[in-house]
Design a protein around this nucleic acid. Structure first.
Lengths: 221, 221
DNA sequence: TCAAAAGTGTTCCTGTTACACCCATGA
DNA sequence: TCATGGGTGTAACAGGAACACTTTTGA
């Protein structure tokens, strides 16, 4: 193995498609670039790996640097993106990631290196730099396909939540409405959540509260 | 993005878990290393990317160099393997791949850089170099999970094949026996294969022959 | 008493599993 | 005629999708 041990001119980066749900809509985090050749373009947060970084730790570091996010919630590797032309300034292979985070835990904060950071509706993305359109699409597909077989929704729900809240999160992520009875049946049958007491939540009939049995990745492949 | 544009000390490699079916058993291709620190160890074929390689083209080139394989059949990206310690000689991020190839199309040929190449039963692997044990396990899991929803089996079946042959291939890959009637129902329901004429195949009742409608990747996610 | 959200079962369809016998051929 | 592998159908079950009304509360 390792055929060209000499000087390979390839750099390794990590990008991350960070999703959350705000106002019942799936949102994705984008930063706005200052640097050429993508000045003014929006992009997924990302950056080169440090020599001691794993791709995962690089993503966590970069999220703090580029958006002020401090905790790394559910975060998974997506795929390597390696077409030679994907970065016009040089050969960079990117390891794409995707994550689901709570909307409330942090205030987005931009840095001098970028001109903006903000959430965008996942179904209305602006033109993106690099191959990030494809990365975002792949990330969304994976997020949706893992939603039904894991407890990743915990990262976007409060510690105690109602089934209606959970359903609304699922609907936002999947981009379609769900049948209430079927959702409850399936969600409870998954066995990832357990009931607590009750809630008054104001205006109407109180709803039962649930919590996730585990607040770490479970059930994901 | 691209935070350390200076000198990053990471190299990029591609590895491949190449599967075939011989004698009704799933086999995986391994090469035997000469180089330290894995002298004498078996490993997945792999190597560094050239500056103009995609990971995929690197795998194809490497397979020809290291094993004399000339055609790139079904070949898919698996994941990036990026733990800093995975290569004791330096930081190398590997893009893992997996493939399924016909057993007959080539004669394995070793090269001066390696001391041996051969097929190993996928369920009886020797100790492997690097993190190749984990790569092989992940590749096998993906191969199995994609088998049922794509036509990847074409690459290991002759152009005209009987349902019994197909079933035997599926059994070898999945590592368990299948019910004959259920297999036929499901395989035909997938709609990827179409009947031809008949076959005498010698000793017994002739079996109907089938061919794949398409001999390129279809149905895979 | 009304508006608003919570809560609850059944039917249908589809796909998966388990299972046993007759058929066509060459030797 | 027999040994060998080819070929076929049905019943039970599980999971997913469609669908409407009653209950509880605060205003």
């Amino acid at each position: 193995m390792r055929r060209h041990p000499s000087k390979q001119q390839i750099k390794v980066a990590a990008d991350a498609a960070i999703f959350t749900v705000i106002g019942g809509r799936l949102q994705i985090l984008l930063i706005r670039m200052k640097k050429r050749p993508f000045t003014g373009r929006w992009a997924l947060p990302g950056g080169l790996l440090g020599d001691r970084d794993t791709a995962r730790s690089a993503v966590c570091r970069i999220l703090e640097e580029q958006a002020g996010m401090t905790s790394c919630y559910f975060l998974e590797q997506l795929a390597a993106f390696d077409t030679p032309a994907r970065d016009p300034l040089g050969r960079v292979v990117s390891i794409g990631h995707f994550a689901l985070v709570p909307p409330t835990d942090f205030r987005l904060r931009t840095t001098p290196k970028y001109s903006d950071v903000r959430w965008w509706r996942a179904d209305r993305l602006p033109p993106l730099a690099y191959d990030h359109k494809a990365q975002a699409a792949a990330a969304l597909a994976r997020l949706r396909s893992e939603l039904g077989r894991s407890n990743i929704a915990w990262s976007v729900l409060p510690r105690a939540f109602t089934l209606a809240q959970a359903q609304s999160v699922y609907e936002a992520i999947l981009g379609r409405t769900l049948d209430k009875r079927n959702f409850r049946k399936k969600f409870l049958a998954l066995g990832l959540a357990a009931p607590l007491g009750r809630k008054s939540s104001g205006a109407h009939r109180p709803a039962a509260l649930y919590r996730f049995r585990s607040r770490r990745a479970a059930g994901s492949l």
